[in-house]
């Protein structure tokens, strides 16, 4: 990956940053649109294959810089944890237990919908996790990526890459404006184990509660760190078996109905 030789990418990012920051935070009643969201959408439009502005190789360079730039965000968030360390220690139970929600929330809400839409065994791969790189590796090793489970995890990975950050940013903004859940709780919720999605989600919480900015980032950073450390083990030993069991259970009803229909 030759980073400097692909100056076109950096120039485009510079233009996108200038445009997005000039536009600033846009609010329509419950919906908050952040500069990061403008940047994501503008970038997506520029990279649209039809326009032929970027080659696939250039897009791969952009994808390669993404995790490195993300490290600077990780530093920025980490620096908020130290000053709030006693606050975080005071809520260590919440930080630990909220991970249960992160790891099983995908299955509880996603799997019934996937089974209802008759996605077959792809439902398991598609909903057992948020389908980021480590989760793909687990499925690749256990089932292979050519299996239904493998196709499922790849489908959620691709779709999540395209819509995940946009969706979480808007969803979080709406939930934050409703004011039912405390911003600290929302902050922990945003630590979903994907950097861009966390950034989009945290950005929306901060836009709604600017006075608690530092604490919100501290909670989100701590939760995201927990997801990073525990993620692989929990999704391998707990989420995947749960998704498989729940799939077998739910699809039983479906095949009963199916055979009943065939008999008629």
């Amino acid at each position: 990956m030759d980073i400097l030789r692909n100056w076109k990418i950096h120039l485009l990012v510079l233009i996108i940053v200038v445009m997005s920051e000039n536009l600033g935070v846009v609010k329509y009643s419950l919906i908050i649109l952040l500069p990061l969201l403008h940047a994501l959408v503008l970038g997506g439009i520029i990279s649209f294959p039809k326009f032929k502005i970027l080659s696939t190789k250039q897009m791969e360079v952009a994808a390669g810089i993404l995790p490195i730039a993300m490290m600077l965000l990780i530093v920025k968030i980490g620096l908020d944890i130290g000053p709030n360390i006693s606050l975080l220690f005071h809520s260590k139970g919440a930080l630990l237990l909220q991970e249960i929600g992160h790891f099983f929330g995908t299955v509880i809400l996603g799997l019934p919908i996937a089974v209802f839409l008759r996605m077959g065994r792809e439902s398991i791969g598609a909903t057992y996790s948020v389908a980021r790189e480590p989760n793909i590796a687990i499925i690749a090793e256990k089932f292979g990526l050519d299996s239904p489970e493998g196709r499922g995890v790849m489908a959620t990975y691709i779709c999540g890459t395209l819509v995940g950050a946009v969706w979480l940013s808007i969803l979080t903004g709406v939930v934050a404006k409703l004011g039912i859940l405390h911003p600290y709780a929302l902050a922990m919720g945003s630590g979903v184990g994907s950097g861009s999605m966390m950034a989009a989600s945290v950005g929306s919480i901060i836009a709604a509660y600017p006075e608690m900015e530092q604490q919100i980032r501290a909670y989100a950073g701590a939760a995201n760190l927990m997801s990073t450390i525990l993620g692989i083990y929990v999704s391998l030993f707990f989420s995947l078996p749960l998704a498989t069991k729940l799939y077998n259970f739910l699809s039983k009803f479906q095949s009963d109905k199916e055979t009943a229909k065939e008999k008629v």
Partner: peptide, 24 residues
């Protein structure tokens, strides 16, 4: 895959936030 992915993302965010709310 679109409604399923949205449900997956919503589930992981909301369930964690709800549990966090109670424990906090």
């Amino acid at each position: 895959i679109v409604p399923v992915t949205l449900a997956v993302m919503t589930g992981t965010f909301l369930f964690a936030a709800i549990i966090a709310q109670f424990v906090l």
